[in-house]
Design a protein around this nucleic acid. Structure first.
Lengths: 348, 348
DNA sequence: TGGGCGGATTTAAACGATTAAATTTGTCCG
DNA sequence: CGGACAAATTTAATCGTTTAAATCCGCCCA
């Protein structure tokens, strides 16, 4: 690679002048400027970002840690982050923690070592370990770049956070099912040690209570986020002869898994059993019947996180902010027989 | 950040010794070693990867440029790359060219400036500009890191490439439709200036000829990759009163768009019109009827590209290799009435 | 005893940029 | 003509590592 030194030599000026031309931070006379620009052009010079990063201590890169970047849910989050980032001249480094807590730590350290200017973290830390985790974040000697927490408010006293009110919308779904005459709602959750899974479950539970329905442990199945877990949960319930007239899944995958087994076993949806999901991933519009769900603003979550991170980078000492985004429930044919819905064919 | 110098001071040795302990490249006596490790531990020291990168000229990072990282097709490609990369201690920097040629160039330069150790490139360069492009790749003064070309063989004389025989499988699909008694096959392509789109079209065309069917320009619609383009292409054909008994789309999105409009207009699939796609994205199993398609090994494409890139990094002077991967067609109910198929619920 | 040898350690020079501080150049005015 | 002041340019230090070369040190053996 041709370096600034060689450009300087070629243009007959000092490296400092070349640097000044490039960064534009100090004034340079017009004809020297042209001479330097010429040399740069001729020699095909490109500034070495690694060297610049070392000197300036800024890499214009931010790190993004998500539980599983392969999941559809996070795609739009990534796009949101990406768009705001590139508008502001930042590059992003996307990493997957695979829902593993130790990996998460490792990645954070790696990002620190890479001198990223900031981190967006969708943590998979469990509720009970959050405090210890937050303490270790600050580290003894280590200075941390600003961190914005996505989906979790567990650290909101020290970290800015971008969240939504999962309990609220989960409750709205439950209410919608109850309003449709359902009383025995089988709830299929993801891993309950994760904060927003817990919140969704609480929303369901509290709504039942509000309606005078005693939550029945038999109707509560917890699993993973995968559709198999929805499939298996419902299969289990059927094999145990549990009676239910609705399945409320805490995400769309599980809802579709549930739909699959119910169709296989000859149930009519929604006549015999209603089904609801959460997240509004596009496949929920493709299956038939389409799935009632909550439209989670994942694009906006990513964008908001990035905007907030930029703000934290600019103002490291400002107090953390907690952004709570709005969502809305979308009623489709899996809960209401004559609901219409369109295939969502955008962006995949 | 605490630097090596401070660790050295704390441990009472020179920075070189600390470095030796960390890299393990030169021998260090056992008790000095322990002392240094202790200091590192106590001071919470982490090596600065930017500085190391500057000195060693290796960043252990590779760049990946894809036309559109938000598209489902590329998700598994990314996973494939990622898994091989992390097994080998590499990080990846994923970028989207948005199918724009200038952006692609810009990103390549940016990656060069960031001193990545290699690049995996799924180029969107058009067939006729390929040569000029390849020339510019080498650059006048600039030394390029090794590049592996994904999906395109246009530069295979200088770059290693990972491809599949698109014409072959596209032809097999056409043959399958013909074997099913279809004679008037409406072809919906993506942008034809892209090499593999052209190949898929050629496969279709040559198969028609082989079967004594004259390709009919009226039955050829070209569009984007989006499902709307499938929808619109079929709508156009219908409005023009073009008669056809099958739609062969060059990707699954377009096929599903076609399915949508045909259902809206009351056609029975596959009785009145058969539909086929390409890529085997999971949504093609979700719609009903499920779409006959070609299972493109995108995970393996990513993995193979990364393996090949590692090889190129190790042996920069070895001649480029051209890997051609296998695929297979999958027959589903959109072309054969009683074909069975399962929802693909894995990995989304 | 002293020279030679090899392993452990340190010195010091990079890597390629940025940026204070010092220096040069140029301009204007008394 | 000379001095003052501002603008342009250069010098040189620095960011945090790695690494070739130099040095040190202990040990063995003639």
């Amino acid at each position: 690679m041709v370096s600034m030194k060689e450009v300087a030599l070629h243009a007959g000026v000092s490296v400092a002048t070349v640097s000044n031309v490039i960064t534009g931070k100090r004034s340079v006379s017009e004809n020297v400027r042209r001479k330097v620009l010429d040399s740069i052009e001729q020699m095909n010079y490109q500034v070495n970002l690694v060297a610049r990063g070392l000197k300036t201590q800024r890499t214009n890169t931010i790190g993004v840690i998500l539980p599983d970047i392969t999941k559809l849910f996070f795609q739009k989050v990534i796009i949101g982050i990406l768009e705001v980032a590139s508008l502001n001249g930042y590059r992003i480094n996307i990493l997957s923690s695979s829902y593993d807590h130790d990996t998460e730590r490792l990645l954070i350290n790696m990002l620190k070592a890479s001198c990223v200017d900031g981190i967006i973290l969708d943590s998979c830390v469990s509720i009970d370990r959050a405090r210890a985790w937050a303490d270790s974040l600050e580290g003894k000697g280590g200075v941390m770049p600003p961190v914005v927490s996505l989906e979790s408010r567990l650290f909101s006293d020290r970290l800015s956070s971008i969240t939504m009110d999962n309990a609220l919308y989960s409750g709205q779904i439950t209410q919608h099912l109850i309003d449709g005459g359902r009383r025995k709602i089988l709830y299929v959750s993801g891993p309950l040690h994760i904060e927003h899974e817990r919140a969704r479950f609480d929303g369901y539970r509290n709504c039942l209570l509000k309606n005078g329905i005693g939550p029945d442990p038999v109707l509560q199945k917890s699993g993973t986020y995968l559709s198999e877990s929805g499939y298996n949960a419902v299969m289990e319930a059927l094999n145990e002869n549990v009676r239910f007239d609705a399945v409320q899944a805490s995400n769309d995958q599980a809802a579709i898994g549930a739909l699959k087994i119910l169709k296989e076993r000859g149930f009519r949806v929604p006549d015999d059993v209603a089904i609801s999901g959460f997240d509004n991933l596009f496949p929920s519009t493709l299956v038939s019947p389409a799935i009632t769900t909550v439209d989670v603003p994942n694009y906006e979550m990513g964008a908001a996180a990035m905007r907030e991170l930029l703000d934290r980078i600019e103002h490291p000492d400002a107090p953390p902010k907690a952004h709570v985004l709005d969502a809305r429930i979308i009623v489709r044919a899996s809960t209401v027989k004559d609901a219409t819905s369109q295939w969502d064919l955008t962006n995949w």
